[in-house]
Simulated scan of single mutants.
Amino acid sequence: MKVLRSTRFLTTLLAAAALAGAAFAANYSLWINGRTGGGVAGNYADFTYWGPAGTAAGVNKKAVNWDGYNHVSDTNHLIRNALDCYCTGPNWCYVAAHSAGNLQIGYALSLYGGTARYKKNATPGSDGSCANSDGTTQTGWNIKWVNVAAGAAGGSELANAGDWALSEPLVSDLKTATARAMYDHNNTRGKMFYLWAGAKGTAYSFVLPGQDDEAIAYHSAGGISGSGGGSYCNPSDWLCNDLTLGTAPAEGGKAKWTNHSVVFRDTAEAYNHYTNGNWQGTVGLVRADMVNNAK
């Protein structure tokens, strides 16, 4: 009888521990900024880049701040810190990225998404890193999907032409040939990338082919594969091939990167590249989607 009672007691304790672990599981919404930065690195509550911090932007939103200035290779550890903190163990993440933030999450998944990651306790220190929860590891991160506003994974012709400060290390990363060769864009570790492409370009963005949002052309924002950028437009423009919705190849047959799907194509040419410190541009559309679906 004593053995039976001890076994039953142990079973009860294990069940209680499992329930306690489940109770602490949480979902998080990670926001990865683009060029120019804006928030303090390691401070996941600093939404300076995006807009008012009190604005709804998905469940348990966190700002994954990096300086938006230095090379992706030199700053990507900040993104991996956040993914380790909030997307391991019982916790899951939704990721939203803007502009060069697209390069950051793509780089992290392609190059590190198949590596062993220590499960973390989701309680970051001042440097943005978290302590191990139980000493065990897992492969990659628990990510449900990635939303991208004005994605720069394909680079920008503005970087090619020297329209941005050439002293910025990030600008060299944003050259179209460099951005497209930086990592395997098809290797998303099975995670879907949902894309929002703006088209409110201006006369001074003539160096950008096809439709653009003043900084990024459709070939990049639309996830078009290949070693160089092409000219892609809205269906109303007969001068270049259409950027198609979903995962289908663009008009003319050029494929999108694997697991990349265009959710929004700016046929009204109403959205530009910039947040304007108030969640604007295509970022506003992504924010609305995060509110509705990142729960």
Rank of each mutant, 00 (worst) to 15 (best):
K120W: 01
K120T: 01
N121Y: 02
N121D: 15
N121V: 00
N121M: 02
A122N: 14
T123M: 11
T123L: 14
P124F: 00
P124I: 02
G125T: 11
G125V: 01
S126H: 01
S126L: 13
D127W: 11
D127G: 05
S129F: 00
S129Q: 08
C130R: 01
C130Y: 00
A131R: 03
A131P: 00
A131E: 11
N132S: 15
N132W: 13
N132T: 13
N132K: 04
S133R: 10
S133Q: 03
S133G: 00
D134W: 09
G135Q: 08
T136L: 08
T137M: 04
Q138G: 12
Q138H: 05
Q138A: 12
T139N: 13
T139Q: 12
G140M: 05
G140S: 04
W141E: 01
W141P: 01
W141T: 03
W141R: 06
N142I: 05
N142W: 01
I143L: 12
I143P: 02
K144S: 05
K144D: 08
W145Q: 13
W145S: 08
W145Y: 07
V146A: 06
N147E: 15
N147R: 14
V148I: 15
V148Q: 15
V148L: 15
V148W: 05
V148R: 08
A149L: 10
A149H: 05
A150I: 03
G151D: 10
G151L: 07
A152Q: 13
A152M: 13
A153L: 07
A153H: 06
A153T: 09
G154L: 02
G154A: 03
G154W: 11
G155N: 10
G155H: 11
G155K: 08
S156D: 10
S156Q: 07
E157H: 08
E157T: 05
E157L: 04
E157V: 00
L158Q: 14
L158N: 13
L158M: 14
A159Y: 06
A159C: 12
A159S: 15
N160Y: 15
N160K: 09
N160E: 15
N160V: 02
N160R: 13
A161R: 07
G162D: 08
G162Y: 10
G162K: 11
G162C: 10
D163A: 10
D163K: 10
D163F: 03
W164A: 11
W164H: 04
A165C: 01
A165T: 05
L166K: 02
L166R: 02
S167H: 12
S167G: 10
S167M: 06
E168G: 00
P169Y: 06
